[in-house]
Design a protein around this nucleic acid. Structure first.
Lengths: 336, 336
DNA sequence: CTGAAAGCGCTAACAA
DNA sequence: TTGTTAGCGCTTTCAG
């Protein structure tokens, strides 16, 4: 039925070992036999079964990536870049979407383990370190984001929200804003807390004020950002600037503000985070904290490669810089 | 080093066959042995190697998906939905991005063949039918989009641009537009031609006029749409309405129009295609031809499942309906 | 330079 | 109910 290396061997009058050698370009095969075998392979359109190679070698040439939301352009761009790197290096990409559910993340990680992928990049940070244990035990390289810990075969990429949010606060402060709000993402992931605290701490240090009803929770999506902003706007007093934990929510906030009949940035300034392509398209173009996808993808790949060579060695701790991109959604604070 | 089924067998004093039975829930194993084996498995955190199962069974439980641009929200949503379906059915997803390059698509398909995936969904339509031959020969189910042909193990989903573009033309006609333009995608894929001809034919039938400089080529991305629109706007006379082959380009067109100082829809109407989430966010919200992602993903999966049962049987030909969503980017034609 | 044989981790007859 | 055996498709010593 399905054609194998042995069949090729039979047809070209050699052993399967020789066919294997031809397939892998081993030097010690006569030019003549090589040609003969190649011919048969071509005649039958034979394509070797990678799965068997995998079983034999223990290397699957597959990397997995686990993301919270494939529909979020930020992740999408990272996936694209990451896939490009893998393609160049002859790896295939297994994609798992968690939809922000930690059980889904859990199950996806398990499946990657079943498949013995050569590495897993985890961009979803909702699950605890415990979930990583099975992978580590099986010496599968892992790279996380904002977990702030490394270990044997375990690398991490820490986005510099600390420094970035300080820049955001500075920017707002320089524009005269004294009352600020914040729209956070899902409360689960550690990264959500980091982003928020980074901003709020910097703001407070600069003497800016915030308060209960100005700090709302979103879901890292447009609708959640709009809803959170609507809640903030329903307060008796509103802040003059609001920063959102990602661009999608900031864009949602834009909408909520317009619906309320307010102007941006004359009445209220908005800052996002990520700098997705859309941020420069919306009206007004969003001031945002850029996280480089190119760098990010490169780090993910590099981390996995590094620990794949020797799974027992401690992974890399990367720091991913952020950059403030000032556009039109921020302006001088309105007089009160 | 790596722990196998045989190791478990040794430790629990049974044969590897029994361990396999326990793993697969075969009924004819004593409650007692089952428990004992299970215990050992748990103690060692043993996870069976799916690759070996694959080799043995010939089923990889992997579906591949080949898309032109992971960064395009339309595809991204399809991937998300498709992945959800696969997850529920215990399949994993291999994603390949072609960046609109047919050689890249080619290589990706080859790699899926190497892996003996159980099916491939091709959303990139830039490569010729020839590229599918190796897959078909290896009886790997394939489902294409807008290829308009089926065969043994080969299914197709035809988006109803014909009917959809007719609705678009009707809509524009009803608004009094008599001069229309069109922004096409990359010229390669057949689907590009279908979209364009569908619209232009309908428009002509209704007595609307178009001309050389009003029909421009984009690249299915925002920048390409903006550039194409700019070229149209540089004509001595401009159309009163322009339809774009997808939303991303329509959004780019919006930008180009604003930059030129024109108003939408007072000066010019714009229609997109896809109805991505962003279309309702931009200003003005885009009138567009909606293609249901849910339906699309479901068809992809169903087609693959169907032909997986019996690869020799002829695939399904689906028709994916389209729906005109009227928003604010279209309005009455301006007086001339 | 080429072949025989063992084995990667698992499953499925067939026996016992 | 359980074990033995063969084999999925490939690579890789080790002989020849």
């Amino acid at each position: 039925m399905t054609i194998s290396i042995r069949e090729i061997a039979r047809l070209s009058g050699v052993s399967s070992a020789t066919v294997s050698r031809v397939l892998n370009g081993s030097s010690k095969v006569t030019e003549e036999t090589t040609l003969r075998v190649r011919q048969v392979i071509r005649d039958l359109n034979f394509v070797p079964n990678q799965g068997a190679v995998h079983l034999k070698s223990g290397k699957s040439q597959i990397y997995g990536i686990v993301i919270p939301d494939v529909a979020n352009p930020f992740f999408t761009e990272v996936v694209k870049l990451f896939e490009g790197l893998l393609f160049q290096n002859d790896y295939d990409l297994l994609v798992a979407n968690t939809d922000f559910h930690s059980t889904r993340a859990q199950r996806s990680l398990h499946r990657m383990l079943l498949r013995r992928v050569d590495g897993v990049a985890i961009l979803a940070s909702e699950q605890e370190a415990a979930a990583l244990a099975p992978l580590m035990q099986n010496r599968i390289p892992v790279v996380t984001t904002d977990h702030y810990r490394v270990g044997p075969g375990l690398s991490d990429i820490a986005v510099d929200f600390q420094g970035g949010m300080a820049k955001v606060a500075d920017h707002l402060h320089a524009l005269g804003h004294g009352h600020v709000g914040y729209i956070g993402g899902n409360p689960g992931p550690l990264t959500s807390r980091i982003r928020m605290e980074s901003f709020l701490n910097s703001a407070i240090k600069l003497g800016m004020a915030s308060r209960e009803g100005w700090i709302e929770e979103g879901n890292y999506r447009i609708d959640g950002g709009a809803a959170a902003m609507a809640r903030i706007l329903s307060q008796p007093e509103i802040p003059t600037a609001v920063v959102a934990a990602n661009d999608l929510m900031a864009i949602g906030a834009l909408r909520a503000i317009y619906e309320k009949g307010l102007r941006i940035p004359q009445d209220i300034s908005i800052v996002g985070c990520d700098d997705i392509e859309m941020s420069d398209i919306v009206y007004p173009p969003l001031t945002t904290l850029r996280i480089s996808r190119v760098e990010y993808a490169r780090m993910l790949f590099e981390a996995l490669q590094k620990t794949e060579e020797d799974a027992s060695q401690t992974g890399l701790q990367f720091a991913l810089p952020t950059q403030l991109i000032v556009r039109k959604s921020t302006g001088p604070a309105p007089a009160r």
